[in-house]
């Protein structure tokens, strides 16, 4: 279970989150949407203990991330937007290291690491190569494997499909759906509305640090007759439809 209770985050005079509250139940995939700077990544950072809230509470599996960080973090898996990892290591070295941080038994950890890399279609020839020269998609596969290696009960995905090819994208979506089916709680941040529409059971749209709407896709669309998720998003976030720059140059005065 993941719970935000009146979350506030300030950076000096700038208020990135202004009293955000929601709850994600086990087995649920919450699509967390918003334009750039809306506060999505800040929310993720508050849930993972990477930042301390200026107000309110963030709970992971019932544990307050500030008061009981270790208990909360043991339940967490994160795919950060940055896709950061120690590139000087090989994928297997990195996953063994992550397993060591969760004190997993070496043999089962090795077996699961290999299974995940295989599932995420990372060429076995690359498993023992340093990641310095890897493409973005190859690194992203390792980041995802490292996030789910310890079978976390709560997973936070911040643009997890960045750089992935079609096959890997399909498999990651299946992995997320499978984890939810097994009772994991999932927060999924993305700008790809069609993906969110397909895999999320509930959607929250955030703008300027506030929740604009929270509900199932069908409920949201019912409130805006004739609208699509895209137009609802544009309306709620104040992003007026406009011509793309290229179109302006070619067709407009």
């Amino acid at each position: 279970m993941l719970e935000a209770i009146d979350l506030v985050k300030r950076f000096g005079a700038v208020e990135a989150l202004r009293g955000v509250s929601f709850r994600v139940e086990p087995g649920e995939i919450l699509g967390y949407l918003g334009p750039n700077g809306a506060g999505k990544s800040t929310t993720v950072k508050l849930f993972t203990g990477l930042q301390r809230p200026s107000g309110g509470t963030a709970r992971v599996g019932g544990f307050d991330i500030v008061q009981q960080p270790l208990q909360a973090k043991r339940l967490l898996g994160l795919v950060p937007e940055t896709g950061a990892l120690f590139e000087a290591l090989t994928p297997l070295e990195y996953l063994r290291f992550v397993g060591g941080l969760y004190e997993l038994e070496p043999k089962p950890c090795e077996r699961r690491a290999r299974e995940l890399l295989e599932y995420l279609v990372l060429d076995p020839g690359a498993w023992n190569r340093r990641m310095t020269g890897f493409s973005k998609g190859m690194k992203q596969r390792v980041v995802i494997a490292a996030a789910v290696l310890h079978a976390p009960q709560v997973m936070l995905f911040d643009e997890p499909l960045n750089g992935l090819d079609v096959e890997a994208t399909v498999r990651v979506k299946a992995l997320i759906a499978d984890a939810a089916a097994r009772g994991a709680t999932i927060l999924y941040c993305s700008h790809l509305l069609d993906v969110v529409e397909r895999i999320c059971s509930r959607i929250v749209i955030l703008a300027a640090g506030r929740i604009q709407v929270d509900g199932k896709l069908s409920e949201i669309l019912a409130r805006f007759p004739g609208a699509t998720l895209e137009t609802v998003f544009q309306r709620l976030t104040g992003a007026a439809p406009e011509l793309a720059p290229a179109a302006r140059q070619e067709g407009s005065p």
Binding site: T48, L50, P69, K73, P80, A84, L85, L101
Partner: peptide, 14 residues
């Protein structure tokens, strides 16, 4: 190292 944040600091390390 900023990399440490995304790689390590959300893990259960005291």
């Amino acid at each position: 190292a900023p990399t440490d944040i995304d790689v390590l600091y959300w893990r259960p390390i005291g």
